[in-house]
């Protein structure tokens, strides 16, 4: 059993009343000592009440901030409270909490600032929506050029970060679609990341909000964000300064 002291679990959720309770209980089963923080992004259902009843703390936002804004708040909270690691997984039940100990272990063993749970590292799961597959292939190609290494699952929302990354992301974090831009933010500071394999499960309840039009908008938005991040921060010549 891996020691999970100093680890916080962050679960972004918006109108996930049907699934959030089950996700929290699953996380409890594998990481009973880690505090769970649900990020309630302006839900209009019972997400907050159910999450609290299941034993999680809830950061409840006054209005719909978007994924990046929620996750950054969790990183700020964790950094201020002195946590060493944060593992973030979705509130819809698609991410298997059984991988949390392996993610923390990977962060500790490699010293990387960020670990991504990848659906494509070992098992080549294919996204069901064709435009989404196009997006992943495109971003793999772009990130391979920018980062100098392959990222098999650049859009994964199942990630773990260490305290160096918490310090950075508390101040600088993409507010809309954070996954890919966050990698570029890290790379510009010469921080490191790695991937471990995972497998996605079907949503427990509800339907994905991802549509082909949204995927195209997402791709344009992220491409711009990547470009802006490169313009803002020149490649950092020194390693691991926490800036």
């Amino acid at each position: 059993m891996i020691d999970l002291r100093g680890v916080m679990i962050a679960i972004p959720a918006r109108n996930e009343a049907e699934s959030i309770g089950g996700v929290i209980r699953e996380v409890r089963d594998v990481a009973s000592s880690a505090p769970i923080l649900v990020l309630d992004d302006g839900s209009v259902d019972d997400t907050r009440r159910i999450a609290e009843a299941a034993g999680a703390e809830v950061l409840s936002f006054a209005y719909h901030l978007g994924l990046g804004g929620c996750v950054q708040a969790a990183y700020q909270y964790a950094f201020e409270r002195g946590f060493e690691y944060v593992v973030r997984l979705d509130g819809d039940g698609q991410h298997d909490p059984a991988d949390i100990p392996r993610m923390v272990e990977a962060l500790r063993a490699t010293g990387c600032e960020l670990v991504i749970a990848s659906r494509f590292l070992d098992a080549p799961d294919r996204p069901k929506i064709a435009p989404r597959l196009m997006g992943i292939v495109l971003f793999r190609f772009i990130l391979r050029i920018l980062l100098g290494k392959v990222v098999t699952d650049p859009t994964s929302g199942y990630v773990g970060v260490n305290r160096n990354a918490l310090r950075l992301f508390s101040r600088v974090f993409p507010l809309q679609y954070p996954e890919i831009e966050a990698l570029v933010v890290l790379q510009r500071r010469a921080f490191r990341f790695t991937e471990i394999p995972t497998s996605m499960r079907p949503r427990l309840h509800g339907q994905s909000t991802i549509t082909p039009v949204r995927v195209v908008f997402y791709m344009i938005h992220v491409l711009l964000g990547v470009f802006v991040n490169i313009l803002r921060v020149p490649a950092f010549p020194f390693r691991r300064k926490g800036k």
């Binding site: 609290e52 006054a62 804004g69 708040a73």
Partner: peptide, 24 residues
């Protein structure tokens, strides 16, 4: 950006307040 930062600080402050009051 300012509104996002305010909403983040408000949510964190609210959680801290609830903890201090012993509600969590």
């Amino acid at each position: 950006d300012d509104a996002t930062a305010l909403a983040q600080r408000l949510a964190i402050a609210e959680l801290e307040l609830r903890r201090l009051r012993g509600e969590r």
